[in-house]
Design a binder for these strands. Structure first.
Lengths: 217, 217
DNA sequence: AGCGTTATGGAACGAACGTTCGTTAACAGC
DNA sequence: GCTGTTAACGAACGTTCGTTCCATAACGCT
């Protein structure tokens, strides 16, 4: 007669000590697994069953932590954007010089993107996947972040008297450079984020400051 | 007693005059419709039924033109890449100056991407969707295109003696700028490709040439 | 008139999908 | 010891998916 208890290999039925902490910990564990699955297969091609497998939960058990597949992607993107913005505001306090501020902006962005490549890919690749209220909330975060960068470029434009500069195009080009990284970054070839942030900031800043302004200085 | 013929509203059973031409014409029509659907919903989320609806074919009728959904995406990407590369080689013949060649490269890329935004989005957004032999063939085209750009940057690096320049990072940053356009381009705001190509080429070329080199000139 | 090729469509297949239902342990507070 | 909450699960629902089978027109050629 076989014993029954040892057969359970899946997430065991919770030795709940601190109820609130346990929920949060398990949720972020699930978000981490789901991020990996979405990164590998893409949101639409990934199934809840894939995430169930990756996280060790049952199919039904997952729905205790999110309302729908869309809601799950929303939670991932919201957390990713929030930590990106939080890191930025912390590093930007007290920085007055626009050029230094832009270098800080770029460094923060790349630190996040190169340090969490899977999260970065889900942010970049699935940035237009959601629809309705979820998308609106993410778009609001994205717009806030975009505007902050435009503001820095406009400050630079004013202090350096760059009359011809198209701030919108400059900022969107910068975002292109940085967000595209998820398609090519290879730590063995490209090193960590510091080795990318400086040359990329150099290209962008030389790019918008232009040749002429260097002579004046 | 109702007549029967007028009830047929769908693609009528082919007044075949020139068999070869008809096949090609219908195929590119289907590719165009499929591009639109893939662009709007993403490859994985788009169904063959969506493409059937958009192209006016029946579900089964489509499979006369491609072997599988993956094959359909392959055909789209192959055609897009081929015309991109063909346009480039035509415009680049006889151009000796590396800077001018790079401006030409950028102009050709943006002309294609801004002129065919839906095709561009499918190329960029689904660049890693296929697997196996299809992906290998597309990757080969992509690598050829990438190498051509690297070669131009290295020529620039040599003639201008830019010792510190990381060609790989520079080219991938340029591709980032250009390919990211599909996420933000709005003809009403940004105008046609000419208004984007020049400022973006300026950012890139000033960026890699750096401030110092301009003083020498 | 008859035949092979080109081109198309209706109907169906099995598989996989997101989600829900009802149930069940484990624990906390009383 | 009882009760409500937390956390998890197996099984199933109805739907949609990519793909295939088979039939059938229209045409070019003989």
């Amino acid at each position: 007669m076989p014993s029954r208890a040892p057969l359970r290999e899946k997430a065991s039925p919770a030795p709940v000590r601190n109820p609130v902490r346990n929920y949060d910990r398990r949720l972020s564990e699930i978000l981490r697994c789901a991020t990996e699955v979405f990164c590998d297969k893409g949101f639409a091609a990934a199934s809840i069953r894939d995430i169930s497998r990756a996280s060790g939960s049952s199919l039904a058990g997952l729905y205790y932590y999110f309302k729908s597949k869309d809601h799950l992607l929303f939670l991932i993107q919201q957390e990713a954007f929030s930590s990106l913005i939080a890191g930025l505001e912390k590093k930007l306090t007290g920085v007055r010089d626009p050029e230094l501020a832009l270098r800080t902006f770029i460094a923060n962005h790349l630190e996040h993107f190169v340090g969490n490549p899977k999260q970065a890919q889900v942010l970049s690749h699935e940035s237009d996947t959601l629809k309705g209220p979820y998308q609106e909330e993410i778009t609001a975060l994205k717009r806030k972040y975009y505007r902050q960068c435009v503001s820095l470029v406009e400050q630079l434009k004013q202090t350096r008297q760059l009359r011809g500069l198209n701030s919108r195009l400059a900022v969107l080009s910068l975002f292109g450079m940085m967000n595209w990284i998820y398609t090519w970054y290879n730590p063995a070839v490209d090193g960590d984020w510091k080795g990318i942030a400086d040359p990329m900031a150099a290209i962008f800043l030389n790019g918008v400051l232009g040749g002429a302004n260097r002579i004046d200085k």
